[in-house]
Write a protein that binds this DNA or RNA. Structure first.
Length: 305
DNA sequence: ATGTCCCAGTCTCTGGGA
């Protein structure tokens, strides 16, 4: 079982790239973010031609999350079950004052049960500036996510929560914690929000498999040659329950997919493979994580140019 | 190095978001 997540930065602009990548990577379950499409414009047919059922939750111009699955998709949940999001197709929706911003008006969460696993595709708010209402909304969004887990999910079930979380778990996940983003993505409150997910019962799948793996990022700004200098952040995460974690046999961030031409997304896909048989967590957390890391062999970080 | 890319409308440029 192969599961992947990728912020595609417009599925419309990236349809060809995504199709090619699906043909090469062959994920069974594929989470997407920033599709930037209305549901009515979701490219269901191209996905169906490749054998995937597409579950799309969008609003038009911005945001948008989706799940493509070739192992079925049932029990769909959007927006934490809290009701419809806005329509940002038209320009009238453009531009929000700080007072208008509400992350729960936006298409940032979709979930389905695929192949016996509950999967959740997430696109966390950016936050923009620490202390802004956008930042406060980001923290409220993370709190809602944790409450949704508390109320609807169990840490004992097979669950994969993945996507662009727009936050780095630790300083190891950012090229320069001081230079990064004027404080967002690295702030203590954002990291506490991620820690609250792990404390609920989730494991950072890539970190568990790859070990320290310095310099392995999933996002690089388009500007200033940051990709070629490998100045990025690991903000695209797959957080999984223990019953999933103990089946991980391989994990990778597909840096090749961040290269052009044509113009790529500014994010790279994150991929994990699950075996049918897992290691046991019974002997203890650290031991299980060490065994997961021992049997996986992600590539080394590419040296900066 | 305030360096790019995506979107829609004001439509070969601009403003907004990342």
């Amino acid at each position: 079982m192969r599961i992947a997540t990728w912020n595609v930065n417009s599925l419309k602009a990236r349809t060809d790239a995504v199709e090619k990548w699906l043909g090469r990577a062959q994920p069974d379950i594929f989470l997407m973010q920033e599709t930037k499409l209305a549901d009515s414009d979701a490219p269901e047919l191209p996905f169906r031609m490749l054998g995937y059922e597409l579950v799309h939750h969008g609003e038009g111009r911005w945001n948008g999350v989706a799940i493509a699955s070739r192992v079925g998709a049932t029990d769909v949940v959007t927006n934490f079950g809290d009701g419809p999001v806005r329509d940002s197709s038209a320009g009238s929706a453009a531009g929000f004052s700080e007072d208008d911003f509400d992350p729960f008006d936006e298409a940032r969460m979709v979930s389905a049960v695929c192949g016996g696993i509950r999967v959740v595709s997430l696109y966390a708010p950016n936050g923009r500036i620490v202390g802004s209402s956008f930042y406060d909304g980001k923290l409220r969004w993370f709190a809602r996510l944790r409450r949704w887990l508390d109320e609807t999910c169990s840490p004992d079930e097979p669950l994969v929560l993945g996507g662009d979380l727009n936050a780095t778990p630790t300083d190891d996940d950012v090229w320069d914690a001081v230079a990064a983003h004027g404080g967002t993505h690295v702030s203590p409150a954002e990291r506490e929000a991620l820690a609250a997910l792990r404390e609920w019962g989730l494991v950072d799948a890539y970190r568990a498999a790859a070990g320290e793996a310095p310099g392995r990022f999933s996002w690089w700004d388009y500007r200033a040659g940051m990709f070629h200098r490998n100045e990025g952040m690991r903000i695209d995460l797959l957080y999984v329950t223990k019953v999933i974690a103990d089946r991980i046999v391989w994990a990778e961030i597909d840096r090749e997919a961040r290269k052009g031409p044509p113009i790529p997304s500014d994010h790279a896909p994150v991929v994990i493979d699950l075996d049918e048989v897992g290691v046991s967590f019974d002997a203890g957390w650290e031991g299980a994580l060490a065994r997961i890391a021992a049997r996986t062999r992600p590539r080394k970080a590419k040296a900066p140019a």
